[in-house]
Amino acid sequence: MSSPLLQTLRKASALTIALALCACTGAGAQTNLYRALGGEPGISRITELFILEIANDARVIHYFEVSNVQRFREKFSEHLCVISDGPCEYTGDTMVDTHVGMHVTEGDFNAIVEDLIAAMNKAGVTLAAQNRLLERLAALRGEIIYL
């Protein structure tokens, strides 16, 4: 199972392979998450599909009714890019500033997670890449819910 030791070993072996590949090709051959998500076009597609999922989700659409969709599209894409180690800069507000006063519940947060999973499924993102991204996003939950 995923004991700390196993995780460390896995990360260590991944690093070793990455270093070996870098040494051979002289380029960043490491499969970073940004590439696994399909790079810029992949993230654009995930974002579009995610917006469509939210638009059809009665549980959470009310949070977005006053949102500027164009701005959400831009900042969410940037966020996915940065969090997946892509070559971007996040220019949006902090997670706390964005969500304060919205009173997002635990259930609403999970609804958004389900919408993102549905979007990634439709975009053809592998389960492995989905889980790598979801784990990074899950760490932000404390900056989003019950504010």
């Binding site: 199972m1 995923s2 196993l6 896995r10 889980n131 979801l134 899950a138």
Partner: peptide, 10 residues
């Protein structure tokens, strides 16, 4: 762990 062994949730 969302991203557990072999990137599966465990």
């Amino acid at each position: 762990w969302i991203d557990g062994p072999l990137h599966r949730t465990g």
